[in-house]
Design a binder for these strands. Structure first.
Lengths: 225, 225
DNA sequence: GCAATGGTTCGACTAAGATCGAACCATGAA
DNA sequence: TTCATGGTTCGATCTTAGTCGAACCATTGC
C-alpha cells in the first residue's frame, strides 16, 4: 500500500470551491490578477491571496510580477490536461452545474484549453490532420509529417521555428465534451493564435468560449475536413 | 464564469487521505471488500463504509454483491486514467511520499493500471507496436491494423472476439512514471492476462507491482521491440 | 437455533481549514 | 509627499466533515 505519488494534496487543492473557480478561470489561458480572481471565485482578496499561495506552493499555478500587479496563470499544460480529465469524469457522472450556463453549447463547440483550441472544432481539426496522415504516432507522442509541415506553412505557420523550442510540438489532449482528442502543444497554440490573426475567430471576454465568425468557421472546416 | 462541469465534488472526494488510499488500491484492478479497504486506508470499517457510499454516489467506484461480501472496484477506465493524471502531476511537482516505498522502482518498471500493463514495460510494448505500424491513429482513438491483428493472434489473443464487445479495443493511457503512452482498452487488458497465462509475469500480492520473470521479460522484449 | 463475520447506521467528538475584518506593506500617480 | 490601489499578514470565527464507539442488520456455517 501507499505506493506511488501522493495525490491527496493536489486533489484536495482542487476540491475547494474557490480554488476550483480560480483554476477553471485560468484554463481560459489568460493570466489574471489576484483581484480579478477574487471576483470570479466570489471571495475577498485576502482569501484569494491565501489560496494563491497554496496553489503556488503546489506548483499548480505560476505567477509573473509586473509593477504592482501579479499575473497568475496555470503552471503548465499538464495542469490544464488534469483539469480537463476532471471535467470529463464530472461531465460523464452527471455533475453538471445546477444552473447550466447558457454559454454551455458555445463552450462545447469551441473553447480555449490553456492555449489551444478545444471543443467540437478542435476535434475536427485533429481528425482532419489524422485523416490526411499529417500526424504520425511517434515513440514519444505525435510527430508531424513533412506533408503536414507544408500544410501548416500554407496557412502561415512556421513549424521550424516552433520545433526548436523546448516545448513539445504536437500533443493530443483529451476533450471532455466530445471525448476525443484535440491538438495541443506548441503547434496547437500556434494554430489558435493564427485563427485569431486571420480574423476567423475572437475570444469571448471573460470566458473560455471562442467565437468563430461564419466565414471563419467555414474556412477552418474547408482546410481541415 | 462558472462554465463547464463541476469538478469540485470529484476533486474533493479524491482529496481525502482515506479515500485516496482506497482509490489507489483499486487502481491495481482487483475488486476488494470493505474490510480489506479499511485495512489499506488505515481506518475502521464504519469510516470506510461512509467513504464508499460517497464514492458510489459519485460513480467513481462500483460494487458487486456476492453473498455477504461486497466487492468494490473502480467504476471504469476513465477514473483510472484520471488517477494516473493526478499521479503524473503529483510526481512532477515533487509530491512523492515522505517514506518513499522500496517498491517504487518495481512500480515504475511494471505495474497494473486498472486492468492493463503500465510502467516501463507497458510503454515498451506500446512503442514496439507503433514502430511496427501495428497501430494507426483513427478518428476516435487507436485502430489495430490487419498485421497487428495477426501479430496478436501469434501470441494467442483473439482480437475478433475482443472487438465485438462494447469496450473500445485500443486506447492510449498516459503513464505517470514515464510520461509516455501505454496500451489500454480491451486489447491491453487481454495482453496483461495473456502475460499471466504464459507465465511471463505474476502480480505481487496486495500491490500494483507486476513481477516479470527474467525469461518472461525477455520474451516480452523480443516480441515487442 | 446460535455464534461468527461482513457491513451499515447513528450520534457525538474533534480538528482542519475556509472565510473575513482590520491592519499593514508596496508600487505607481499626481 | 500624499493618496489610491494591488496584495499580504494576522487573528478570530465558524462550519464542514472525517473519525470512532456502540448498536444494529444480514448472511453463512455449525
Amino acid at each position: 500500500m501507499k505506493d506511488g505519488p501522493n495525490i491527496v494534496g493536489i486533489a484536495a487543492l482542487i476540491g475547494d470551491h474557490a480554488r476550483a473557480e480560480i483554476l477553471t478561470a485560468l484554463t481560459a489561458g489568460q493570466a489574471l490578477t489576484a483581484t480579478e480572481l477574487a471576483g470570479v471565485a466570489g471571495v475577498t482578496k485576502q482569501t484569494v491571496s491565501a489560496h494563491l499561495t497554496k496553489l503556488l506552493d503546489a506548483r499548480l499555478v505560476a505567477v509573473e510580477s509586473q509593477g504592482r500587479h501579479r499575473y497568475f496563470r496555470l503552471d503548465n499544460q499538464d495542469v490544464a490536461q488534469l483539469l480537463e480529465s476532471l471535467m470529463g469524469v464530472a461531465y460523464r457522472t452527471g455533475a453538471v452545474r445546477l444552473r447550466a450556463s447558457p454559454r454551455e453549447p458555445a463552450l462545447r463547440k469551441a473553447r480555449v484549453c490553456y492555449d489551444h483550441l478545444a471543443g467540437e472544432l478542435g476535434v475536427l481539426v485533429f481528425d482532419g490532420l489524422e485523416q490526411r496522415r499529417f500526424l504520425r504516432a511517434g515513440s514519444d507522442g505525435l510527430r508531424l509529417t513533412a506533408n503536414g509541415q507544408r500544410f501548416f506553412a500554407g496557412i502561415g505557420i512556421d513549424v521550424e521555428a516552433l520545433a526548436n523550442r523546448r516545448r513539445p510540438l504536437c500533443r493530443a489532449c483529451l476533450d471532455w465534451s466530445v471525448r476525443r482528442h484535440h491538438l495541443a502543444g506548441a503547434l496547437g497554440a500556434a494554430l489558435l493564435d493564427r485563427c485569431f490573426e486571420l480574423g476567423w475567430a475572437r475570444r469571448a471576454k471573460g470566458s473560455r468560449v471562442v467565437n468563430f465568425s461564419p466565414s471563419g468557421e467555414q474556412a477552418l472546416r474547408e482546410r481541415f475536413h
